[in-house]
Design a protein around this nucleic acid. Structure first.
Lengths: 234, 234
DNA sequence: GTCTATATGTGGATAGAC
DNA sequence: GTCTATCCACATATAGAC
């Protein structure tokens, strides 16, 4: 045994992943050069190719490291809810929380890099590069299927097509919120200390999304009476 | 007068802008080289620098060409509403429609390139490059201020902080919807012919966003009773 | 205004010593 | 597993002829 601490296995890999996560978030994939990345990680330029094979493979590894556990957590939360419900449809609010919780809790992890990743993730949903979108879609697919089924059972009164769009709106709101939370000042000064309060954000998001999901389905024949319909439904 | 049609002024500029719009949407800014761009526009490689000065200046011109008229249209719509209202606060639904209408109508313009631009725009809200975000923010700022004031007057019961977040959610939903409308299949097969029906999409979006904007403000003390509150409010 | 040819920099990837 | 040196493709931008 040497007197020095034993070097953790794959320490180099981890340093590369951490640096990549932060730089990809700050500058995007294309603008982050391997030279900049390896300098930040304090590893040799050739290390990325040795450990990951290519820049693209590194990008995939960055997403897998966080996204696989995150989606597993979501599915586990849904499993727990469905076990408790014993065959009954779930409450829409509970499904929403099961989905957004995992991501929101990660924005409080500033030191461990979770916040960086979440913002990177939110932006990558709309990345122009096809392989990137395909990767994200593939990593999400299993969880997506489960949540879609749960929403369909919970909201039988919302037709299939309408539900697809509402889920689309929902995921969009979440993705954008996570990606652009630093930009909220653009609209107006909000208390900076509230920006990363995931509990507060969860309540705000849940309220907003739940209302959208539950709103009465519009009839094509009455385009300007949505507010009326909400009042009538109440 | 020659027998040939007179060459329109700045035809080269327009061809460059059109090609840039499409390629930036497909591949992003970094991945679109001037060589590819000028080839698509059928102009000389040096033409971009001659007419715009640099690639960055071209990017700015692409956004200004569409975004300035688009935001002007939004502000005009708001002007009309406020003139009609004669000092009374506006209906939240009308404000939402005034904001989202201009963008939604543009997605039907597939041939003229409007659809390309809208998707490019939606994605660029979360672009990692600081100068790009700064440009977008600057081009939006005047319209943003007007709409924020209108929403504050229309929704006095919502509280400043909460309203800022709800507007953030709203713009996020819109941006993501416009950017990723082709990805809706990711959630499930939706009728492809509905994807670009801006009227249908406007009804769906308005219903979703309006419900979120109007939902009762959560109390921090009762985190799991949002559904109850909606029922109580009704 | 348009073109060719080129200057100048940077990118990802790798061969081969240690 | 780590490092240096280098290959080669491709980027933006421009000089100068037409």
């Amino acid at each position: 045994m040497s007197l020095r601490a034993v070097k953790p296995p794959h320490e180099t890999r981890t340093r590369i992943l951490d640096a990549a996560e932060e730089l990809f978030m700050q500058h995007g994939f294309e603008s982050t050069s391997m030279r900049l990345l390896t300098a930040k990680a304090r590893v040799n330029l050739a290390a990325v190719n040795y450990h990951f094979g290519s820049k693209d493979a590194l990008i995939e590894a960055v997403f897998r490291r966080r996204l696989d556990p995150m989606n597993a957590e979501r599915v586990e939360a849904l499993d727990r809810l469905e076990n408790q419900a014993a065959g009954q449809p779930l409450a829409p609010e509970a499904i929403i929380r099961a989905f957004i919780g995992a991501g929101l809790r990660m924005i409080e992890d500033a030191k461990g890099g979770g916040r960086n990743f979440i913002r990177l993730l939110g932006r990558t949903y709309t990345d122009p590069a096809k392989p990137i979108r395909a990767l994200i879609g593939q990593l999400y697919a299993p969880a997506m299927t489960r949540f879609k089924t749960a929403f369909e059972r919970a909201l039988p009164q919302v037709g299939r097509d309408e539900l697809v769009w509402r889920m689309h709106f929902m995921f969009g709101t979440l993705a954008y919120t996570l990606a652009a939370t630093d930009t909220v000042q653009l609209i107006a000064g909000c208390k900076p200390e509230d920006r990363y309060d995931s509990r507060l954000l969860e309540e705000r998001l849940t309220g907003f999304l739940l209302a959208g999901l539950l709103t009465p389905v519009p009839q094509a024949s009455a385009p300007s009476s949505i507010a009326d319909r909400i009042v009538q439904a109440a």
